[in-house]
């Protein structure tokens, strides 16, 4: 029966493609500007980390881990990074790290204000929520296609795709954190004569900081996982190595590259989590 019904095909894919082409034609200057900025950010950070002797960078990161966390975290960071270095993945790891840092920072700069907006206005929240669902569940590879059309293949398109994929957690958790501040605390702040700005910066944000940090942590972790996928459009780094291993069916090399990703992920996770714990106290 159903076969007999002729439901006209709705050309959603077509429309989307036309939309992207439209953006490409008319807002070229915008995408070009973004392109230049992100490329210089990634390249400069990468250049700096590569320019410094590997051992110096390793020590700096270990000390940072020790400072925000425990001496065990410092030790773990030291051993983990030395292992990556000795496996010969140092320059890949550094380029992955640069990409992760730049895209995470962009995701946070956009995501935290969005989360605040969502917490303040029901209307904003009702628009932002489905958008986040979309960003989170759309298969990550799909972002890559418009990204390479609008930006050049390589680090920039990879960064943009990563930003989109990694942003939702920090938006959601910022929103949640602010909404979880108890009503009577908000009322108290208002009853003492706070302005909206004072309420936000002196009461709501500080109290929701631990939750926001959980969101930041999640965003950075997602960025790391996306950066590996982004190697498909030439973003380079450890993802590139994994892909090479895959195409050559090289078990040992693939495992080593994968291990490097895991180590990097654990270090970044523990360090940002320790930042969150610090915020709690």
């Amino acid at each position: 029966m159903l076969n007999d019904l002729t439901i006209p095909q709705i050309p959603i894919g077509d429309l989307f493609e036309r939309f992207i082409r439209f953006l490409q034609r008319n807002f070229d200057f915008f995408f070009e500007a973004v392109n230049v900025i992100i490329r210089s950010l990634v390249q400069n950070l990468n250049g700096l980390l590569i320019f410094l002797p590997g051992i110096i960078v390793i020590i700096i990161f270990s000390l940072l881990a020790w400072w925000v966390g425990t001496k065990w975290l410092g030790l773990f960071t030291l051993i983990g990074l030395i292992l990556i270095y000795s496996m010969g993945f140092w320059s890949s790891a550094v380029s992955t790290l640069s990409l992760v840092l730049v895209s995470s920072i962009i995701a946070l700069i956009i995501g935290i204000p969005l989360g605040i907006l969502a917490s303040k206005s029901e209307r904003a929240s009702s628009i932002i929520r489905p958008l986040l669902d979309f960003m989170q569940t759309m298969p990550a590879f799909v972002y890559l296609i418009p990204a390479i059309i609008l930006f050049e293949r390589g680090a920039v398109a990879g960064t943009i795709a990563t930003v989109i994929f990694a942003m939702p957690p920090v938006v959601r958790l910022t929103n949640l954190g602010i909404r979880q501040v108890p009503t009577d605390v908000i009322e108290a702040a208002k009853s003492l004569g706070s302005t909206g700005k004072q309420l936000l910066f002196k009461v709501q944000l500080p109290i929701s900081l631990p939750t926001i940090f959980a969101g930041i942590n999640q965003t950075i972790m997602l960025a790391l996982s996306m950066v590996v996928i982004a190697s498909m459009i030439g973003a380079g780094g450890l993802g590139q190595d994994v892909r090479t291993a895959l195409s050559r069916v090289n078990i040992g090399f693939g495992f080593e590259a994968g291990l490097a990703v895991v180590i990097l992920a654990m270090i970044i996770d523990r360090i940002t989590q320790s930042f969150g714990d610090k915020a709690k106290n």
Partner: peptide, 27 residues
């Protein structure tokens, strides 16, 4: 006019002194 709340409504991230002087700080 100032208000005192049932569940106190204190600012958990501030010390006792900072709680009390909040109303002055924002002025």
């Amino acid at each position: 006019m100032s208000m005192v709340f049932q569940n106190f409504g204190l600012f958990p991230h501030r010390t006792v002194r900072q709680n009390v002087d909040y109303g002055l700080e924002i002025q």
